[in-house]
Amino acid sequence: MCTVCGCGGGKYEKFGGSRSREANRLVKVEQDILAKNDAHAERNRAWLKARNILALNLVSSPGSGKTTLLAKTIEEIRGRKSVSVIEGDQQTSFDADRIRQAGAPAIQINTGKGCHLDAKMVGDAMMKLDPGENSLLLIENVGNLVCPASFDLGEACKVAILSVTEGEDKPMKYPDMFHAAKVMVLNKIDLLPHLDFEVEKCIDYARRVNPEILVIQLSARTGEGLQGWMDWMEGMI
């Protein structure tokens, strides 16, 4: 196009130089990309607080044992506290079925291609689930150590679950997630005798990205160490 008189239009600035400001205006926006999600999250948080519900957001890579730990937790807490669960997976309702079998109401959210739960999805699920006052709401996020780190759901805190079969370097490889979590549950410790996983090294790595992180070691299968998890949760309630 002609850069002298501006005829022709197209993708380029019409007059070039300073006069282009006349045709192309800059509009200040200054908005957080996650502002909308965060607003939903705050709404969820206020709703939960008004009902004195403790909500935990469980995050991990696929297969680290989130659903197994939830099922165990439900069994363990039965009669003392009512629990409900929101399950996030790209596909299937397998996990929600497992939770119902364990005896707690559950809602499955299928994110399709989405790789994380967001605050709006969780807010909608919460309304359907309608958890009672003073109860416990456990949210199992989509198995993914990257994306769920950025999305606040309105939970009290994130709990990162790492199984010992994944290797001790994961907190360093996925620092955002272990930074965002308040607790790291080191799961499947029943398998330690068969592996060369170094527990102390893993904890050291986790503390590098998050010096305050609390570490709970357990086996969701055998129940070893489960008491530490239950005690921590009671403390949060």
Partner: peptide, 10 residues
């Protein structure tokens, strides 16, 4: 930071 700072419009 993750922000939309400004946009150029016409």
């Amino acid at each position: 930071e993750m922000r939309v700072k400004e946009i150029e419009v016409e």
